[in-house]
């Protein structure tokens, strides 16, 4: 490279400045494709979405500016509040329960099963928990929809065979039960992810900690509380935040299993905005819902970013 070759002959401080600034400017070309893509696919559409949210727009004709009216209407819309209430339920199903279960299962596999029965047994069990993670969510949805089917689905036929026919329900068709039925599917999907992450985390914990605790006569449960939970704190935080972001974005399971129903008993923000866009074509209103959702997710993501910068390096995906 010519610049650095000639630079070696000049004075030291000038060399450094000249060298880097010229060297850097040439690198701009390499970010151009990414930048153009970002503008076209993210920045401009996001700006347009914000603009739509300030308008009355039915998908045809021109958007008519109405200021903050859509947002005002949102605050008084019970459906909007219901959708965010359901988001809380899905945070429980996708973030809190899988994290709690995952941490215990990972610790048992790593510190109990693995030393007693060998690491092969532990990895095999881990793989069985992970398997649902490989499915496209749409496929998982179809599978569970079939199992929940009220007449011939396996859950109800099994209950009837056990003489518990009274417990058989229209799982996805009952507005009181549907949300729990969907939550159940999501827990099934998510456990594998948390188990694998926490087991990876445990593999970096110094075994001497456990050995010392063992010598002091600590029970397994005491070791879990004092060592495992403490050592896994970074993983737990990151997993909780990323899965919460995913829970706020949840769409496909709802679309496949219930389409937000029965009634509006499983509606979530993502589905609510989708149906405004493409079913009722209240585009401006849907855009306002999507903007509020984006804001909420950004708040959670910033929490993640701050946490990670505090822990110097290391990052996780925050996608849904």
């Amino acid at each position: 490279m010519s610049s650095s070759n000639t630079a070696t002959h000049t004075v030291a401080p000038r060399r450094a400045r000249q060298g880097t600034s010229e060297r850097r400017s040439g690198y701009w070309w390499y970010i151009l494709p990414g930048a153009v893509g970002f503008l076209a696919v993210v920045a401009v559409p996001f700006g347009m979405n914000l603009w739509y949210s300030l308008t009355s727009f039915r998908g045809v004709g021109d958007p008519v500016f109405i200021g903050l009216e859509n947002y005002q209407r949102l605050l008084g819309d019970p459906l909007f509040w219901a959708s965010f209430r359901h988001s809380v339920a899905f945070i429980v199903a996708m973030a809190i329960l899988p994290t709690a279960i995952g941490v215990v299962v990972a610790a048992v596999l790593f510190n109990f099963i693995s030393p007693k029965f060998g690491s092969k047994v532990a990895s095999f069990l881990r793989a069985t928990y992970y398997l649902p993670q490989i499915l496209p969510i749409a496929v998982a949805g179809v599978l569970w929809k079939w199992m929940y089917q009220p007449q011939y689905g396996i859950i109800n036929t099994t209950l009837r065979d056990l003489g518990l026919g009274g417990l058989a329900q229209n799982w996805l068709g009952d507005s009181d039960l549907a949300i729990y039925a969907v939550m159940n599917v999501l827990v099934w999907l998510q456990i594998g992810y948390t188990v694998v992450v926490f087991m990876a985390g445990l593999s970096r914990v110094d075994p001497a900690l456990y050995e010392a605790a063992e010598l002091d006569g600590a029970t397994w449960w005491q070791q879990f509380r004092t060592i495992t939970l403490n050592q896994l704190r970074p993983e737990i935080a990151v997993v909780l935040i990323t899965t919460s972001v995913a829970a706020l974005k949840v769409f496909a399971p709802i679309f496949v299993l219930t389409r937000g129903g029965p009634g509006t008993s499983t509606i979530v923000p993502a589905y609510f905005s989708f149906s405004n866009f493409f079913t009722t074509t209240k585009v401006g209103y849907g855009a306002a819902v999507a903007s509020v959702l984006a804001l909420m997710i950004s708040v959670v993501a910033v929490a993640l970013l701050r946490y990670q910068t505090r822990n110097s390096e290391g990052f996780e995906d925050g996608r849904g």
């Binding site: 559409p45 993502a270 999507a290 997710i297 849904g320």
Partner: peptide, 17 residues
């Protein structure tokens, strides 16, 4: 900014796209 691109919910991009 890039991080924003993958955290943003796709609902907030979909109609303009």
């Amino acid at each position: 900014l890039f991080m924003l691109a993958f955290t943003i919910p796709q609902e907030a991009l979909v109609y303009p796209l």
